[in-house]
Simulated scan of single mutants.
Amino acid sequence: MPFLTQIDPVVLAFSALGLCLLALFIMLIVLIRQSRLLRRYRVLLDRNPDLSIDDLLIQHQEGLADLKAGQEALRRRMADLERAALDHVQRVGIVRFNAFPDVGADLSFSIALLDGRDNGIVLTSLYGRSECRTYAKPIRGGQSSYTLTEEEKQALSRARENVPAQS
Rank of each mutant, 00 (worst) to 15 (best):
G128H: 06
R42L: 04
L28M: 14
E161F: 11
N119P: 04
P101N: 06
D50C: 04
E151V: 02
A99H: 11
V43R: 15
D50R: 10
D55R: 10
I111A: 02
D87P: 07
Q34V: 03
R47G: 02
V95F: 06
R39S: 12
F109Q: 06
A136N: 09
V10T: 06
L19V: 07
Q71N: 12
S145K: 06
R33T: 05
G120V: 02
D80P: 00
L57Q: 02
G120K: 00
F109A: 06
L56V: 01
D54K: 10
P164W: 09
T124S: 02
A165G: 12
G120N: 07
Q6I: 04
A65T: 05
G18T: 08
K153T: 13
V30Y: 15
F97T: 06
M27F: 15
L114F: 02
H60E: 11
Q59L: 14
R133Q: 07
D118N: 14
T147V: 13
V95H: 00
L17F: 12
G120A: 03
L107K: 08
S108L: 07
R36E: 10
R96V: 04
S144I: 00
L19S: 05
V122C: 02
V103A: 03
L148E: 01
F3W: 13
L28Q: 15
G142N: 02
A69V: 09
L19P: 05
P138L: 13
L22R: 13
Y127I: 07
G63W: 05
S167Q: 09
R75M: 05
Y146N: 09
V122L: 06
D106T: 11
K137P: 00
L37K: 08
V103K: 07
V43T: 10
K153S: 14
A155N: 07
I32P: 06
D46N: 11
R96I: 03
T5C: 04
E150L: 03
V10C: 06
A136Q: 06
S167F: 10
F97L: 12
E72I: 08
S52G: 15
P138T: 08
L126M: 14
